[in-house]
Amino acid sequence: MSLPDLPPLRDVVQRHGLIATKALGQNFLFDEQLLARIATVPGDLKGENVLEVGPGPGGLTRALLRRGANVTAIEMDRRCLPALAELAEAFPGQLRVIEGDAMKIAPAELFDAPWHVVANLPYNVGTALFTGWLSGQGWPPQWRSLTLMFQQEVAERIVAAPGSDAYGRLAVLAQWRSKPRIAMRVHRSAFTPPPKVMSAIIHVEPAAMPEGVSARMLERVTEAAFGQRRKMLRQSLKGLPGALDALEALGIDSQRRAETLAVADFVAIARVLTA
């Protein structure tokens, strides 16, 4: 089946009078070769369900549709809806557009089968959405993969190793039962308007969840440990009942700081406190 001939993205944006809005964390991507590369990161999407958050004028959306994905796009900027409606018409049956706030919409209510998430996330809500998709006791999740654009600094925090300045709660949350990697980096000049920082694409796939661990308990442990990351564990964890006893039982020196502990150490502490 031949793909529809679409006008250049810049022409679409100009025709609809769209201007990226800082309040909504918008930065538009017009490079269709770059967008096509991003759409390949999750693998074969033909016939797959894909959730896209903040599609804007639909640059990444058209790349996903061209790969045969069935896209559900959540957009809260009403100015972008006419451009997205044109895409829905060009790809009959492949695109569903929902006007609303992705922070208030549960993806599980949108799909009756597993889905991928592929999105150039708005900077102002990206981390909150990401941690929401990673949280909860139920595992494996209903999503098959996450392919997300972040500020490079945030991306590096997600994949950070113990002992680095970037290592913290976000790294532990992302790595304890999933496999995150930086799939590609995107120069700030690729965006309109150019943001002040570089960006990166993170790809995440679920991994096995360690047994005997409460996700909520792990969140509590990391929140306490990294909430005062420059202090020793004996100080930062003293407010969490049983945490200091758990350190002793596991043979973890309470004089260490949180950033020196491996992900497996945090899992072990949470397992003791969960029991």
Results as ranks from 00 to 15, higher is better:
Ala183Thr: 04
Val118Ser: 01
Leu247Phe: 11
Leu247Ala: 11
Lys196Pro: 05
Asp44Val: 05
Thr72Val: 15
Ala36Leu: 08
Lys46Tyr: 09
Ala262Arg: 13
Ala246Leu: 06
Glu99Trp: 03
Ala208Val: 11
Ser164Cys: 09
Leu218Trp: 11
Gln33His: 13
Leu65Ala: 08
Glu52Thr: 09
Gln151Thr: 08
Met209Leu: 14
Gly227Cys: 10
Leu87Met: 10
Ala268Asn: 06
Thr72Ala: 09
Arg169Pro: 04
Leu250Tyr: 05
Gly138Cys: 09
Gln142Cys: 05
His187Arg: 14
Asp112Ile: 02
Trp176Asn: 02
Val272Met: 12
Val197Tyr: 11
Leu148Ile: 01
Pro194Tyr: 12
Gln26Gly: 12
Leu250Val: 02
Ala88Asp: 09
Arg62Pro: 08
Ser135Ala: 15
Gly25Ile: 03
Asp265His: 08
Ala83Asn: 06
Gly56Cys: 05
Leu237Gly: 02
Leu35Arg: 10
Ala69Thr: 04
Leu64Val: 07
Leu261Lys: 10
Thr222Ser: 05
His203Tyr: 06
Glu75Phe: 00
Glu48Gln: 15
His187Ala: 15
Ala161Thr: 11
Arg157Ile: 07
Val213Thr: 01
Ala39Asn: 02
Trp115Gly: 00
Ala166His: 14
Ser236Asn: 10
Leu60Ala: 08
Met198Glu: 15
Met209Pro: 03
Val53Ala: 00
Tyr167Leu: 09
Gly93Gln: 12
Ala166Phe: 02
Ala270Glu: 06
Met103Gly: 07
Asp265Phe: 14
Trp176Ile: 03
Asn120Thr: 00
Glu205His: 00
Thr21Gly: 07
Arg234Glu: 08
Arg37Ala: 14
Lys179Leu: 14
Gly56Lys: 07
Asp77Ile: 01
Glu99Cys: 03
Gln255Ile: 06
Pro92Asp: 06
Ala200Pro: 09
Asp112Ser: 15
Val272Pro: 02
Gly136Ile: 09
Lys22Pro: 03
Gly47Ala: 05
His203Lys: 00
Thr131Asn: 10
Arg10Val: 11
Arg188Phe: 10
Ile252Lys: 05
